[in-house]
Amino acid sequence: MSRPRRERRSVVAVEAIGAYVLVRVTRGSLDPGIPGQFFMLEAPGRVLPRPMSLCLAPRGELAFLLDPIGPGTRALAALEPNDRLHVFGPLGNGFRLDVERPLLVGGGIGIAPLPYLAEALEQPPAVLGFRSEHHAEAAALLPGADVVIDPVLVTDAMPGGRDVLACGPEPMLEAVRAIAPDAQLAWEAPMACGYGACYGCVVEIDGELKRLCVEGPVLCSS
């Protein structure tokens, strides 16, 4: 597995995609890692960096999709080309790619790791769910995906007999797990450090509280 590094990178572009924002930075010597792994992005003016899974890895760049809903993500969305920020990663455990019939399932900002994952799996079928038409514009990042909009749920549109790789809000992941017990699920938790130092991101795994940044963020549900 590639070793995480922390580097000060430059912003290439910040692009609105529907309700979301794609922050593109120069790659430097950072390794893009395995799909589902994440990076800690310095949020200008904030005390703590923000964990973001890699969305795309264009040549010489790393790109992160974020939902500007809090002070950290808004500070990141307000970055301008040539602004500099520290980027630390890749961190955590990504998706296992040795699956026979992959199906990607994403909900809302949880689609973030799926474009890079789709590339690694040679564009498998995908089902994406969003809360509005505006949010659903981000489906452009995954050409060919089936898109559902609230109140229709991704679980209503998921074909059976597939190896599911999913990322989205917790209720969606629970619902996916109920119909696809072997699914690989990428979870989310507030994190201060991303490298096992703060013990802030614990979630219950096998009946114990474990650090999501070390054990996850991708967990096998069964």
Binding site: P190, A192, C198, G200, V202, V203
Partner: peptide, 30 residues
């Protein structure tokens, strides 16, 4: 990290929160 006589799982999440000028933690001596 602080070692206590008995094992401690620590507090249930949410355990951390950023503020404008710092952060709060309630790990609970896990």
């Amino acid at each position: 990290k602080t070692v206590t006589p008995e094992p401690r799982e620590g507090n249930t999440p949410v355990r951390i929160a950023e503020t404008d000028f710092g952060m709060l933690n309630a790990i609970g001596l896990a």
